[in-house]
């Protein structure tokens, strides 16, 4: 066994993870979740559903019209409608209801997406391949349309598929989303949200229409989710099962790791989360003989570690790395 190979491999993987479009999509989705959970105290456990709505809205529209911007608009409108549909019945009720309804609604979206009934649009179980909707996006690229470009060990296409162009756009979007969330949560509007997180009756007694604020928060956070969904599928393909509730749980892990109710928490948390995953995967693969754990079992073990990690994090450091214990996002 070559230890040098292990380290080279590990650090190469670290780098590609940090550049990855998937990582960027996680950051954006976690920023949305931060608006919901971190700043408003809304327990949305269906963020993956918002991503899926965004992904389907975008991919199906672009697939049939080949119009990129129309796809984006449909995705965003879809997320707004989804947020309103979830919010109207639940936002006047106790927090548990929102939790159950969001996770249920996300599951409904996934089941419908998976179903053969709408296969002409959604592709059913097989989903929608990236090639069906990625061309209009590639056409916007100022980089060469074909060919690969290598920086160090990282060799990606200029424009096609999981490309440099997509990486540039995805990480620029991350920067924009962080800036937007910063402006929003530091504003008087964000102050009202934080008040609601703690005690909505108090805020109500001060003349604020709490239900409207909660609905706005759900919509805004959901829009981030939809954008994350678009970014995610541009790198891969639309697959309902890739955006199930486990993805939402991952996003919570990222958010809580970095620190809920902090502007940079989602970014830091997502980086750390993925680096730990890559570290575990590479290390188990290298150090543990395959007679003990087969190649297929490595992801399972990493998932177990994620689950236990989430438990320990919430118990022992609920404020995460950047959070302030006095400003804990957990309402009760």
């Amino acid at each position: 066994m070559d230890i040098g190979f292990y380290f080279t491999n590990l650090f190469t993987d670290f780098g590609s993870t940090i550049l990855s479009v998937i990582t960027a999509s996680y950051v954006i989705a976690a920023i949305g979740l931060n608006i919901h959970f971190g700043f408003t105290g809304l327990l949305n456990i269906g963020q993956a559903g918002f991503m899926l709505i965004g992904a389907y809205g975008f991919a199906i529209t672009v697939r049939f019209t080949q119009n990129f911007w129309l796809g984006v608009v449909v995705a965003l409108v879809g997320a707004v409608l989804f947020a309103l549909a979830l919010g109207l019945p639940t936002l006047k009720l106790r927090g548990d209801y929102l939790a159950i309804v969001t996770i249920a609604a996300a599951e409904i979206v996934r089941l419908i997406g998976d179903n053969q009934l709408l296969a002409p649009f959604t592709g059913g179980t097989f989903g929608i391949p990236g090639s069906a909707f990625s061309k209009p996006f590639a056409a916007l690229s100022p980089l060469p349309q074909i060919g690969l470009f290598q920086i160090g060990p990282y060799n990606y296409p200029f424009t096609e598929g999981d490309s440099w162009w997509l990486r540039i756009v995805a990480w620029s979007l991350v920067a924009v989303c962080i800036a937007i969330s910063f402006l929003l949560v530091r504003s008087p509007w964000g102050r009202v949200l934080r008040g609601i997180r703690e005690d909505e009756d108090a805020v109500r007694s001060l003349g604020k229409n709490v239900t409207v604020y909660k609905t706005q928060s759900l919509v805004i956070g959901g829009l981030f989710g939809a954008v994350a969904g678009i970014v995610n599928v541009l790198a891969t393909s639309v697959s309902a099962d890739a955006m199930g509730r486990t993805l939402t749980f991952e996003l919570y892990t990222c958010l809580l790791l970095g620190g809920a109710a902090t502007v940079f928490g989602p970014l830091l948390g997502t980086f750390l989360y993925w680096l730990v995953l890559v570290f575990l995967r590479d290390s188990i693969g290298f150090w543990v003989p395959s007679s003990v754990l087969s190649q297929q079992q490595i992801p399972q073990v990493t998932w177990i570690v994620v689950g236990i990690g989430l438990m320990l994090l919430v118990i022992f450091r609920p404020q995460g790395i950047l959070g302030n214990k006095k400003e804990l996002a957990f309402g009760d």
Binding site: R191, R194, G195, R197, E198, D199, D201, A202, S205, L206, G207, K326, E327, L328
Partner: peptide
């Protein structure tokens, strides 16, 4: 405008 018997100061703010 009212106040509450069990004070609702927003402690995390």
């Amino acid at each position: 405008v009212r106040t509450f018997q069990l004070t609702k100061a927003l402690s995390a703010m």
